[in-house]
């Protein structure tokens, strides 16, 4: 087998399952950060609509900002759960 050849069938390569785990976790990370982004934008821009003099306040903060802080803490909890329960501990030696 010539290791430098560029014409091969990718299915011949046996994939290390640790990389499959890594890819899955990369996708989870993306989805979580994107969900956070959209949730924050939707909440801020809908609750924060209109004239600030008419804003409602929660605990002394403008309502939209208060809920953004709550969402952030909610996601911290979600991240804790994902990293502790869903992400897998794997050996990181170069070759198994």
């Amino acid at each position: 087998m010539n290791v430098n050849e560029r014409d091969y069938d990718i299915r011949e390569v046996e994939v290390d399952e640790r990389f499959t785990i890594a890819k899955r976790e990369m996708l989870i990370t993306f989805v979580v950060q994107l969900a956070y982004t959209f949730l924050m934008l939707v909440v801020a821009y809908s609750l924060g609509k209109g004239d600030p003099t008419l804003y409602r306040f929660v605990m002394g903060m403008p309502e939209w900002w208060f809920w953004c802080l709550i969402i952030t803490f909610g996601f911290l909890g979600l991240i804790y759960y994902l990293v502790r329960r869903v992400f897998k501990d794997i050996p990181i030696d170069p070759w198994l």
């Binding site: 890819k23 996601f75 170069p94």
Partner: peptide
Amino acid sequence: MAQSFMNFVVLGQVGKKIGI
């Protein structure tokens, strides 16, 4: 606030793959 989870994002996206 977008940067809040930078550790999660960086290490989650590429941490394990780069580590190995």
